[in-house]
């Protein structure tokens, strides 16, 4: 990954202490322009604190932040109009309608022209599918609707960078899909998207890059393939002829292991390292060798495996 001046976000040694506790300790994040960057980590690992510092809401204890090529928080006034954000859940005036809330927040941005305010608000509401509820008071909104209104707020003016903190929080599966599609279409328009989440499947489906936080430190960063570990995929074969299969796979230089599966079959697994035979050739050889193939798949390790390996299992996450 390059650390050139055109990175959308670049932090160096970014640290935030609350008293003696370091919420974020010395992280170097580089978000390339045009990337959909997943910012992963268990709850309490410092994701939101990092985002707050990137947006100038909190001052770093030490370290530097450059957003769209400008120092934050020093050049906040020229940077933030080009950035849309959803931080730690939506925040709205419950006694105002959805549209009135967006107009209100839009007046806070001195670069947002008043002449097009109504049209831009309508367009943003349409984009997140809230046109029907535009005149409804926000206290009558469901959590998912508030979340979508929060995303609409981030889309009021054309943005070069979107920072979305847990954008699918509180959304039902349809809403989650819509947000994913929205992220894809925004990314296709060239917007850099920085999305924090603890939902790995989310990140895996939309992101091109990711970083993993654990206990305030950055434990991994790179493209999704780099993170998963390219080439370290696993072969899974379901067959009653385990011994024969191990022999055939051995002739390809693969060391296989067997575990018992249902219906008198055995599950044969082998790690594929780098350049090995094509899956098609492997199946042909197995069948040719008299192995009854009941199931065959090549599985790449999920981001989840990598995530758990880096941040700990279950409730034992590093604090």
């Amino acid at each position: 990954m390059t650390g050139d001046a055109t990175a959308a976000i670049e932090t160096r040694g970014l640290t935030k202490r609350f008293g003696s506790h370091a919420a974020v300790s010395g992280i170097d994040v580089t978000v390339p322009r045009g990337a959909v960057f997943g910012f992963l980590g268990p709850n309490g690992s410092g994701k939101t604190t990092t985002i707050r510092m990137m947006l100038g809401l909190a001052a770093p204890t030490s370290g530097t932040i450059r957003v769209l090529g400008h120092d934050m928080p020093r050049e906040l006034h020229s940077v933030l109009p080009r950035v849309g954000a959803l931080v730690e859940g939506p925040g709205f005036y419950p006694y105002l309608s959805g549209a009135a809330n967006l107009r209100r927040l839009d007046t806070a941005d001195r670069f947002a022209p008043s002449a097009t305010r109504r049209a831009r608000v309508e367009r943003a509401l349409e984009r997140v599918g809230l046109t029907h509820a535009a005149r409804k008071k926000v206290h009558a909104y469901s959590l998912g609707m508030k979340q979508r209104l929060g995303i609409a707020n981030a889309l009021l003016t054309p943005r070069e960078l979107l920072v979305l903190d847990e954008p699918t929080n509180g959304l039902d599966p349809q809403g989650t899909r819509e947000v994913r599609n929205l992220i894809r279409s925004l990314a296709a328009e060239g917007t850099t998207i920085f999305v924090s989440s603890h939902l790995l499947a989310e990140v895996e489906q939309v992101c091109t890059h990711a970083a993993i936080m654990s206990a305030g430190e950055l434990v991994a960063q790179g493209t999704l393939d780099e993170l998963r570990g390219v080439g370290r995929s696993e072969l899974r074969l379901l067959t009653p002829d385990a011994g024969l299969a191990i022999h055939v796979l051995g002739s390809f230089g693969l060391s296989a292991e067997t575990t018992d599966a249902a219906d008198g079959s055995a599950l044969v697994t082998a790690t594929l390292l780098g350049q090995t035979a094509e899956p098609d050739a492997l199946v042909a050889a197995l069948v040719g060798g008299g192995v009854r193939v009941r199931g065959f798949s090549i599985e790449r390790p999920s981001l989840e495996d990598r995530f758990v390996a880096l941040t700990g299992e279950g409730f034992d996450v590093v604090q």
Binding site: R52, L55, G56, L57, L76, H77, L80, P81, V83, A85, V87, E88, G89, P90, G91, F92, Y93, P94, L105, D106, A108, D109, R110, A112, N153
Partner: peptide, 18 residues
Amino acid sequence: SAGTLRYLLIAPVGRVRL
């Protein structure tokens, strides 16, 4: 407390102006 302060600030409203 309504959570709108952070959205005003990142708009950005400017703290003195607010």
